[in-house]
Amino acid sequence: MPVVFRVDDCRFHFFANEGDPREPVHIHVARSGADAKFWLYPDVELAYNRGFDARRIKRLRDIVEARRDEIEDAWNDFFA
């Protein structure tokens, strides 16, 4: 499970086996007791949320939007 970065108590990562065929670029966010998934394109969109409150989801979405290029670069480097 490649970790792209950490912010506060959250780990931003993707899984080494992201489906067959591979799903489009996305990022998982996890912390103890909660996880979420965001699609990166065409817009950053919440795929699912298990345990984060609305305020945290907004903050996580803002982080993903701000660091979208970094996430996509890590994805492409890993799966190249």
Rank of each mutant, 00 (worst) to 15 (best):
P2D: 06
P2T: 12
F5N: 01
F5H: 10
F5L: 13
F5D: 05
R6Q: 12
D8N: 07
D8Q: 10
D8E: 15
D9S: 13
D9K: 14
D9V: 05
D9E: 12
C10D: 10
C10L: 14
R11E: 15
F12N: 02
F12D: 01
H13C: 09
F14Y: 05
F14G: 00
F15M: 11
N17D: 11
N17A: 15
D20T: 15
P21W: 10
R22V: 11
R22L: 06
E23I: 04
P24N: 04
P24S: 04
P24D: 07
V25T: 12
V25C: 09
V25L: 07
V25P: 13
I27R: 07
I27A: 06
I27T: 06
I27V: 15
H28M: 10
V29S: 00
V29A: 09
V29Y: 03
A30P: 02
A30Q: 08
A30N: 06
A30C: 01
R31P: 01
S32P: 05
G33P: 09
G33K: 04
D35N: 15
D35L: 13
D35Q: 08
A36Y: 03
A36K: 00
A36H: 02
K37T: 05
K37G: 07
K37W: 02
K37R: 15
K37L: 06
W39M: 07
W39F: 02
L40H: 00
D43Q: 15
D43Y: 11
L46K: 05
A47I: 03
A47N: 10
Y48S: 08
N49W: 05
R50N: 15
R50H: 13
R50W: 06
G51K: 10
G51Q: 09
F52W: 03
D53Q: 08
A54P: 10
R55G: 01
R55T: 14
I57A: 03
I57F: 02
I57P: 00
R59T: 07
L60V: 07
L60S: 07
L60Q: 13
L60A: 03
R61A: 14
D62F: 02
D62I: 02
D62S: 14
D62A: 15
I63N: 03
I63A: 05
I63D: 04
V64R: 08
A66G: 15
A66C: 09
R67D: 00
R68M: 03
R68G: 01
R68C: 05
R68Q: 04
D69H: 12
D69L: 06
I71E: 00
I71F: 00
I71C: 00
I71H: 02
I71Q: 00
E72F: 04
D73K: 13
D73S: 11
W75R: 12
W75H: 09
W75N: 05
N76I: 08
N76D: 13
D77Q: 14
F78A: 06
F78I: 01
F79R: 02
